[in-house]
């Protein structure tokens, strides 16, 4: 499973403004820099590069005047189950898209298993599996056909593709829908076939963007089991979510993003400091409390 020291600091890491600070500021207050507090910051142990699975340096992306990702430095160790959390618009999906070679960054670099994603995208994409938020599939293929063609395009042995596809469809409860066109799949089924496509080639690192969205509880449990087995085999999983309970339940490491910055990252117990993740998250992000008078019109008058 996870290594003891999965969050690896970049060499000569200096937290950028508003980045990776501890302790979290009071609710409603923006992070402006490291602040002394009652709890010690999460440990930032050193590790050899060989233990690093994913490495980001100064990752930066701007859309027009909006800075979506503001210079992220992060190392994720091999075998870890890393959860990237943050409010809507924090930059999680943009970050994952840049890590997986789907969105060109304006600055910085990404390395996966020693392959520079943007200098050698083919090598990087060969060792990763991706389940993006906006799942683009060939809608006019059946589930079985999709896996078959994706495996062949990845130059896998057709016999291996077919046997793995059959097993994945069976485990994910899609055997009965193997011949159904993906256009006719429900959202949950689409997520599952997307996951099957991401796992088919047994990637070293799996990136999942909101994998449990629109998935029913039974399927969610199946997916958790599959992901658990995947990390047991030494693979790395990076996934984004805004459901804290899921992250707390699944991940051994967590990174918290807000306004395009990574404001905390490390082993989950170090980031939470014994508190619940959602409490820590709210205190890190700062949430406006709903005033007493807000939305008063929603209350029914006692008749």
């Amino acid at each position: 499973m996870a290594m003891a020291t999965p969050f690896l600091p970049p060499p000569s890491h200096q937290p950028a403004e508003g980045q990776a600070t501890w302790p979290p500021p009071p609710p409603g207050q923006r992070v402006d820099g490291p602040t002394p507090g009652p709890l010690p910051p999460p440990p930032l142990p050193s590790a050899s590069p060989a233990e690093t699975s994913v490495s980001l340096r100064g990752l930066y992306k701007r859309f027009g005047s909006k800075v979506a990702v503001d210079g992220i430095d992060l190392d994720i160790a091999k075998g870890s189950f890393f959860g990237l959390v943050g409010p809507n618009g924090a930059g999680k999906s943009t970050t994952l898209s840049m890590i997986t070679g789907l969105l060109r960054p304006d600055g910085g670099s990404v390395a996966i298993a020693d392959a520079d994603v943007w200098a050698d995208p083919v090598a990087a994409k060969a060792v990763i599996g991706v389940l993006p938020e906006k799942l683009l599939l060939f809608e006019r293929l059946s589930g079985a056909e999709l896996l078959g063609y994706l495996g062949r395009i990845r130059r896998m042995d057709p016999a291996v593709v077919d046997s793995r596809a059959e097993e994945l469809l069976s485990v994910l409860g899609l055997s009965d829908a193997a011949g159904t066109l993906i256009a006719d799949y429900s959202q949950g089924m689409r997520k599952k076939i997307g996951l099957a496509a991401a796992l088919l080639h047994r990637p070293e690192v799996l990136f999942l963007d909101e994998p449990f969205e629109s998935v029913d509880p039974v399927s969610a449990r199946t997916i958790r089991t599959v992901l658990g087995r995947f990390t047991e085999a030494g693979a790395t999983i990076v996934f984004s979510s805004h459901v804290m309970a899921t992250v707390e339940d699944l991940c051994d490491h967590v990174g918290v993003m807000n306004l395009g910055r990574l404001i905390a990252a490390g082993p989950i117990e170090d980031v939470t400091g014994g508190q619940r993740l959602d409490d820590v998250f709210v205190s890190l992000i700062g949430a406006d409390e709903l005033g007493e008078g807000s939305l008063a019109w929603l209350r029914r008058s006692p008749d």
Partner: peptide, 20 residues
Amino acid sequence: TVDPSRLAPLPLERRELVQG
């Protein structure tokens, strides 16, 4: 019909993608 954006996550060389 074969929309390249659906092939973006795959490890395809530019030459292979264009030929395909």
